[in-house]
Design a protein around this nucleic acid. Structure first.
Lengths: 146, 146
DNA sequence: CAGGATCCTAAACGATACTG
DNA sequence: CAGTATCGTTTAGGATCCTG
C-alpha cells in the first residue's frame, strides 16, 4: 500500500505509473508488472521461444514443451495473445486446426527472452546449484542452514 | 513424478539432461528449469536488475522493489545466492549490515534480464492489454469468453 | 537491521472429463 | 484436434512475531 518507492522516483505516486509514459517495473502497480508476469511465467518463456522459429499448432507446442498441461498452455497462449505477442489463427475445418504465430511485437520480446534462455542453457555447467545441490524452487521448506 | 514427457526427445531419457552438457529448457526435468525459475521469478527479475548498479543492502532492495515482502526478498536472494548469481556479505556489526552484490556470473544473467525489462518498460505503450484491459495474471477465473 | 519461524490465504498448476 | 470446465493438490506469497 504505502510503498511509495522512496527512491529518486519523480512523479510516480503510490507505485502507480501513468499509462502514456514509460513503464516502471519497480512500481508495484505499474501494468508492466503484468506483462512481465506473462512473459517470464513458467510457460510463457518457453512458448515465446518455441514460436520464434515459426508457426506452431497447439499440440505441437504441447509436445515440444516438456511437462506443460493443456490448461496451462491454453492459458499462457491467451495471456500472450491478449498482450499482442501471439496471433491465433483458427481454421474452420474438422478436425479443427489452430495455429499460433508471433506478432512483430511478440518477436521483439521473444528475442530478448531467447537471449536469456540461451545464456542459461549454455552456461548451465557453471552454475553451482546445478551440480547436485538442493533446488530451492522444488522445496521451499529447506531444513538446511547456511 | 511420472510425467515422462512423451515427446520424441532424442537422447534425453525421461526429460532429464546430462549435467556436463548444455542445458535444455524444453526437457521437463533439466536443472536449467530450476535456474530459469529463480531468474524469471516474480522478484528474481527485479532483484537482479536492482543489483546491476552495484551493491545494495537488504532494506535498500526492499524499499526499491515495490510490493516485495521480507520473506520473499530473503527467499529470492537465497535462490540467487545458491545459483552463484549473488554474493552475500554480512558485516559483524551491531546493528547488522548485509550487502548483496552480483557475481560476475550473476552480472551476465542480469544483463540479459535487463534487456527484457528495458524492452517491456520502453514498449509498454504498444501493448494492447495495458490500455485498460483485464489482467489475466491477477485473476485466472476469467468469466469472459472470446 | 537482517532475517528466521510460523501460520495462513490465494494463486498456480495438473489431471481428468467433456464439448464443438 | 483444440480446447473448456471442474476439481483437487501444491506452491508462491504475505503478515506477523521473534531473535541475534
Amino acid at each position: 500500500m504505502s510503498d511509495t518507492t522512496p527512491n529518486g522516483m519523480t512523479n510516480w505516486k503510490d507505485g502507480l505509473c501513468p499509462d502514456h509514459l514509460r513503464g516502471n517495473l519497480y512500481a508495484g502497480k505499474c501494468p508492466s508488472r503484468t506483462v512481465l508476469n506473462h512473459v517470464s511465467s513458467r510457460w510463457g518463456v518457453l512458448v515465446l521461444i518455441s514460436l520464434l522459429d515459426g508457426t506452431h499448432r497447439f499440440s505441437d507446442l504441447r509436445r515440444r514443451i516438456g511437462g506443460v498441461s493443456e490448461k496451462m498452455l491454453a492459458q499462457t497462449l491467451k495471456w500472450l495473445e491478449g498482450d499482442g505477442f501471439v496471433e491465433r489463427h483458427a481454421y474452420p475445418e474438422v478436425p479443427p486446426r489452430v495455429e499460433y504465430t508471433l506478432t512483430p511485437l511478440g518477436t521483439e520480446v521473444a528475442e530478448r527472452v531467447y537471449a536469456l534462455k540461451d545464456w542459461i542453457e549454455t552456461n548451465l555447467y557453471r552454475i553451482p546449484s546445478v551440480n547436485g545441490e538442493n533446488t530451492p524452487a522444488d522445496n521451499e521448506a529447506d531444513t538446511s542452514e547456511v
